[in-house]
C-alpha cells in the first residue's frame, strides 16, 4: 500500500508543558518579522491583470472607427441583473455602413447592477462588448454610475476586427452589383 501508518508517540514531559512548541512558534514569527513584505501598495503599485480578467464591460469599435454593436439586444436579454438598457436605432441611408442597418441609439450599462459575469461578452454575435481590465470605479451618485454609450466607447477603445464580416458583405454586394 502506498501509505504509511505513523505511530503517534505519547508526548514527553517537556512537550506537555507546550513551552518548547511556543518557543518554536516564536522563532518562526520572529523570522517572518524580518522577511520581505508581500503587500502590494495598491494605488501606487497596480496589480498585474491576468489574461481573461473580467473588469468593466465596455463597447468597442473596429479599426475603421465603426461601432460594432448592431443593437441586437442579445446582451440586454442575457444580462442576469438587467444592467443593460438599449434603444435600437437605424443607421441613415447615406452613411458609410448603411448596409449594417442598425446601431444603438442609446446604450446604458448600470455599473451598480453589473455583476461582471461576462455573459454579455459571450453572447454578443458582433464581438462588440468586452469586459476589460478596469476594476475600480466610483462616483458620487447613482445616476453617475449609469454609463452612457459615449463613455462606454471611450473606455472600450478600438479592437482589431478578425472577421471583417461587414466589410466582406459590402464587398460581396458590390461584386454582385458589378456582375449584374
Amino acid at each position: 500500500m502506498a501509505f504509511k501508518i505513523l505511530e503517534r508517540k505519547p508526548l514527553n514531559w517537556a512537550e506537555r508543558t507546550y513551552l518548547p512548541q511556543i518557543i518554536t512558534g516564536l522563532k518562526i514569527t520572529l523570522w517572518n518579522l524580518f522577511q520581505k513584505k508581500v503587500t502590494l501598495e495598491y494605488p501606487d503599485v497596480r496589480p498585474v491583470i491576468p489574461e481573461g480578467y473580467r473588469g468593466i464591460p465596455t463597447l468597442v469599435k473596429d479599426p475603421k472607427g465603426r461601432e460594432k454593436c448592431v443593437s441586437c439586444q442579445l446582451c440586454e436579454f442575457v444580462c442576469p441583473p438587467k444592467a443593460i438598457r438599449i434603444q435600437p436605432g437605424e443607421i441613415p441611408e447615406d452613411a458609410d455602413y448603411a448596409h449594417v442597418e442598425k446601431a444603438p441609439k442609446q446604450f446604458d450599462i448600470d455599473m451598480l447592477r453589473c455583476i461582471y459575469c461576462g455573459f454579455c461578452q459571450e453572447v454578443c454575435p458582433e464581438e462588440a462588448i468586452f469586459l476589460q481590465n478596469d476594476f475600480s470605479l466610483s462616483g458620487y451618485s447613482r445616476e453617475e454610475m449609469v454609463f452612457p454609450k459615449a463613455k462606454l466607447y471611450e473606455m472600450g477603445g478600438t479592437f482589431p476586427d478578425q472577421h471583417n464580416k461587414w466589410g466582406k458583405k459590402q464587398q460581396a454586394a458590390e461584386e454582385a452589383k458589378a456582375h449584374g
Binding site: 517572518n32 518579522l33 524580518f34 513584505k37 508581500v38 503587500t39
Partner: peptide, 10 residues
C-alpha cells in the same frame, strides 16, 4: 506594525 511585519505586511 508588529502584526503587519509578522504577517508579511507593512
Amino acid at each position: 506594525k508588529i502584526a503587519g511585519w509578522i504577517q508579511g505586511r507593512y
